[in-house]
Design a protein around this nucleic acid. Sequence first.
DNA 1: TATTGTTATACTCTATAACTATA
DNA 2: TATAGTTATAGAGTATAACAATA
Lengths: 159, 159
Amino acid sequence: MANGETTKPPAPDVGTHPDLGFMHPLAQLTSLVTTRVITLAEKNGLTPTQARILGLLLNGPQRMATIAQGLDIEKTAMTGLIDRAEARGLVERTVIPHDRRSTNVTATPAGKAAARAFYSQLNDTLEELIAELPPRDREAFRSYAEKIVGSVSGVCPNA
Amino acid sequence: MANGETTKPPAPDVGTHPDLGFMHPLAQLTSLVTTRVITLAEKNGLTPTQARILGLLLNGPQRMATIAQGLDIEKTAMTGLIDRAEARGLVERTVIPHDRRSTNVTATPAGKAAARAFYSQLNDTLEELIAELPPRDREAFRSYAEKIVGSVSGVCPNA
DNA sequence: TATTGTTATACTCTATAACTATA
DNA sequence: TATAGTTATAGAGTATAACAATA
């Protein structure tokens, strides 16, 4: 929104797949959550990718390479990503004294605020979704999700 | 892959968020599934969006406007989307006799095959994830997901 | 020589605005 | 006039290849 965003709005239902039956409930749930992530990012003036980057930077300044690794994207994509985030005042590039090849990226106060708001709202939203379940089932669902995620290596928590 | 794809590979973990604690398990699960969707689409020579479009077209030919509505994207984005899918031999534009303004989009045999493979493999993959749970909990988890999805309007089942 | 980041280039997805053809 | 699709334009995200600066 803020600076002529182009991020797209949620994507609703698409029908059934006759040859395959209804889509898997876990696939539908994933779409639902993804939609919420996009909406909340927009609401906070972020793209989903910017939200992920800022989530990382809440741990403190990170080198470009570290961020790239965290997002599992090529380092070449980082330059533009950080350029745009910097242009929006979300992050800043700072120098690393010991290694003049490296660059540290720091979240600005505005960037941190946006990220905190985003993740907090995301948490609330997800809790609201779970609240659709009867109270006694909510904890079970949460623990199932944890178990599944925990059983697999390399899960990206941000969007 | 097929025609110089640019789709990106999975995105792994990103760490914890000190100010917010660990990411919500449902957010992590969503990322996990999204990663699988991207990987499976690639494996079948599709972009995730193409997989969604083809999923729709398994129901039979659809007009551009209908597809746009199904994906919840602007009709202006459809032209390029279908152009690219057509260039890859996944779909074809056909004429509608009664209304010469409209265009029907039909999945080619190759497009249908790719879509069926994708959705079938996605189903298998999601079942494998659920299989991480003890047998007696799997059905409960599925029903929880269904309940949450069912409680909300407008959920997009494809990718 | 190996590493860090950048630039050049290209492609996908998506949006808004203006336009064409048809109804 | 209203609707279906296209074109023009723009911006975000991502990738591969080649390169510069530093270690």
